[in-house]
Amino acid sequence: MKVTFLGTGTSQGVPVIGCDCKVCRSLDFRDERFRTSIHIQVGELSLVIDTGPDFRSQMLRAGITKLDAVVYTHEHKDHTAGLDDIRPFNFKQQRDMPIFGRIQVLDQIRKEFSYIFAGTKYPGVPRVKTIEIDENPFTIQGITITPIPVMHYKLPVLGFRIGDFTYITDANYISEESLRLIEGTETLVLNALRRESHISHFTLAEAISVAKRTGAKQTYFTHISHQLGLHSAVEEELPEGIALAYDGLQLTLG
């Protein structure tokens, strides 16, 4: 399995208009973050989790020329707004793009991208095939994906596990039942927004605590706000087996 972090930031990421903090002025490429998204290659299967507003730039930067499916964690705009930019894959691959999500996610996408689903379609609009998922495992091209239910304040969000890899973003609560689904994970990706308390995201300290509870051999933090601090400085504080992810980071697993 090959994992590429397409984006590790948030809408509170960098650069931030009008902000003159050290992170926003940093020349370290690891402090420049697109909105959170990830690409996973498993055998022949190429999939993306979430298509945020930066989706087109992310795919161009990563050099991804084949995409078999999109899987959505939840319906917030910073995770769905780039859906229109799947069109080049429609043109190249000559087929509809399967998009997987909970019913409320797909309903929101149908509302926000109504032109995609109109009875009379404008030529060249994205072509998608919506596939509803729930909390039960599902497969894409023979690859099993296990949803990990978490809470983003009062909004249900899905993390996903493929083999020994688990990806969770936009969460501030993981139930004991969901923690059991993570057991045995070797590589965990988890959100860590900032140091200060937040209504819907794990803080750095909370994320470290959760990472330790899962027993994952290696954890990478994502969905990072500029408020967390400089990448280089935060890295020095982290326990062994925990690191900050950054845009463009690639992992070869298994």
Score class of each variant (00 low, 15 high):
234 V>Q: 05
224 I>Y: 06
113 F>A: 03
119 G>R: 12
246 Y>G: 00
218 Q>D: 06
192 A>L: 05
112 E>C: 04
186 E>S: 11
249 L>I: 08
25 R>I: 13
30 R>F: 11
130 T>R: 01
246 Y>D: 02
240 E>G: 05
145 I>C: 02
43 G>E: 12
71 V>S: 07
145 I>E: 00
68 D>T: 07
136 N>D: 11
239 P>W: 08
163 G>R: 00
58 Q>V: 09
103 I>S: 12
118 A>Q: 08
185 T>R: 01
85 D>Q: 12
113 F>D: 07
221 F>R: 01
82 G>H: 03
114 S>P: 04
185 T>D: 02
15 P>Y: 12
46 S>V: 09
147 P>N: 02
231 H>N: 15
57 S>L: 10
1 M>D: 03
197 S>C: 05
173 Y>Q: 09
181 L>M: 07
36 T>G: 08
101 G>F: 02
89 F>S: 03
135 E>K: 07
218 Q>F: 10
198 H>P: 04
219 T>H: 03
152 H>L: 08
19 C>G: 08
141 Q>F: 04
210 V>M: 10
23 V>I: 14
73 T>G: 15
56 R>A: 13
27 L>H: 15
31 D>F: 08
242 I>D: 00
210 V>G: 06
117 F>H: 11
20 D>Q: 13
41 Q>H: 14
164 D>F: 04
211 A>E: 04
195 R>H: 13
232 S>R: 11
171 A>P: 00
252 T>P: 00
76 H>P: 02
197 S>L: 13
201 H>A: 15
86 I>P: 07
238 L>Y: 07
9 G>L: 10
104 Q>L: 07
114 S>R: 12
244 L>I: 09
215 G>N: 04
6 L>Q: 02
198 H>W: 04
7 G>M: 03
30 R>A: 11
126 P>D: 07
30 R>D: 10
236 E>R: 12
216 A>P: 03
198 H>F: 01
177 E>M: 10
107 D>I: 03
7 G>C: 07
41 Q>S: 14
110 R>L: 06
103 I>R: 12
169 T>G: 12
247 D>N: 14
145 I>F: 05
34 F>D: 09
204 L>P: 02
22 K>C: 14
56 R>K: 14
220 Y>P: 05
187 T>G: 05
79 H>V: 05
59 M>Q: 10
232 S>V: 10
187 T>L: 10
64 I>H: 05
250 Q>A: 10
83 L>M: 15
68 D>S: 07
181 L>V: 09
